[in-house]
Design a protein around this nucleic acid. Sequence first.
RNA 1: GUCCCCAUCGUCUAGCCAGGUCCAGGACACCGGCCUUUCACGCCGGCGACACGGGUUCGAAUCCCGUUGGGGACGCCA
Length: 474
Amino acid sequence: MPQTQQNAPRVRTRFPPSPTGALHLGGARTALFNWLFARHHGGDFIFRLEDTDRERSKDEHVDSIIQAMEWLGLDWDEGPHYQSRRFDRYRQAIDQMVARGRAYWCHCPPERLQGVREKALAQGGKPMYDGCCRDLGPGPAPGAVVRFRGPREGHTGWKDLVKGPISFDNAELDDLVILRSDGSPTYHLAVVVDDVDMAITHVIRGDDHVSNTPRQILLYQALDSPIPQFGHVPMILGGDKTKLSKRHGATAVIAYKDMGYLPEAMLNALARLGWSHGDQEVFSRQELIDHFGLEAVGKGAAVFDPDKLLHLNAHWIQHSPPQRLAAALPPFLAARGVERFDEATLLAAIPHLVPRTKTLLELAEWAEPYLVDEVVMEPQAAAKFLTAAQAPVLERVAAMVERLGVAESAALEAGFKDLAGDLGIKLGGVAQPVRVALTGRTASPGIFEVMVILGQARTLARLGRALKMATSAG
RNA sequence: GUCCCCAUCGUCUAGCCAGGUCCAGGACACCGGCCUUUCACGCCGGCGACACGGGUUCGAAUCCCGUUGGGGACGCCA
């Protein structure tokens, strides 16, 4: 459903994380929105790594971010581009601005800057650079930086795609550093040059960037470059309404993969955080692409709700083909010590397990009894249901299975009811000991379903073993 | 402190732009019930919000102003 107008430039968005940590929920949502916007409009999604901070940028973070993007299925059309490889280009842009008087060298030592800020703050103003070197006109020197020469009057504004019109008084903006004393460009300069060179048409980012936007717009103008459209999406907050951080539990998206979440659930949850489409709650990847638009993004910050993610995960697990689930399960099974198992058995069991499962972790837990040779008896369950008093039940059920097999569920159920009647107990009185015998637990899918998946031989073997435990239990 | 942004159930939100059909709808969570061989799924029901104060108007969740509250930014981090 591309809606690109003939004369409008092709939509190009980008996701530019700085590799100083893992991809967290907020970053993932920003990536998602950019990706959705590009896909919806049939445009391009560019992936870029903002690693101009050589101290904090790490290769391992690059790898983990890419891993998270791939897990979510956010594929990019170009990149990853690395800012660290484009320093010459930035330097060229800076030199050009200096040559044209749009930027100037500044020799102010850090201590002086510090003092200027403190003084401004003390006087009730904003801590800004006072423009000391602005008209002094010193040239380059070791330890000097280059600052952008911003206008002191007028105002700079734009029509934000999610927030509406926003405007800043230029007097509120100080002359920001664009070249560090070590010769590297700063963030503001690098993003603008990159977005210009990469022909980005829409900058969709967290609203912690709104106050950066006027300065960047000024930079575009100084570079005589077209200004992209901006859309600032509200931030994601933790349960205590403060900026999401490690304190709020798992914030790295990739951690959710290991906790047994499906990427479609994560995508669904992230999209609904801030964006909506009427009352619809569940969206497939394609539906997200079809319906996504910045005009439907809310303006207020949102709190991430783990319960809702869990609910969505349960939904997507229930709506996944068994094969897909089986393919994702081995790591979770292995974590439980189940390395080798019969795949057909797993596939047969999954449909019965899925309604009581919210994560792949739980699915592996439910699946275990079907896949191991000898079930692990939960002590509490055995103590309650595998007693001498229940031995006759197990004995007679075994005889029944011997005679009828496991395929005749209706006949077995009738047999169970007769047995319960004979013994003067409820149906549960028969079913529970059998359940524990077959699965080692007090909770499982329907007991006749379990038997079918186990097959007659294994059902009988487990009944036999349980009978031994029961008779010797006293 | 200064500037910018925001404000509907505990949480995510619909409604707001084009005021009445909203004593505000959906979802998650929670509570109760039904179903039932266990645990779930499912179904039914319940609890629960327009931050406050002014104004405009016949009429405001919706428009305007103010207050309060919250968030963000103010780096040679991004």
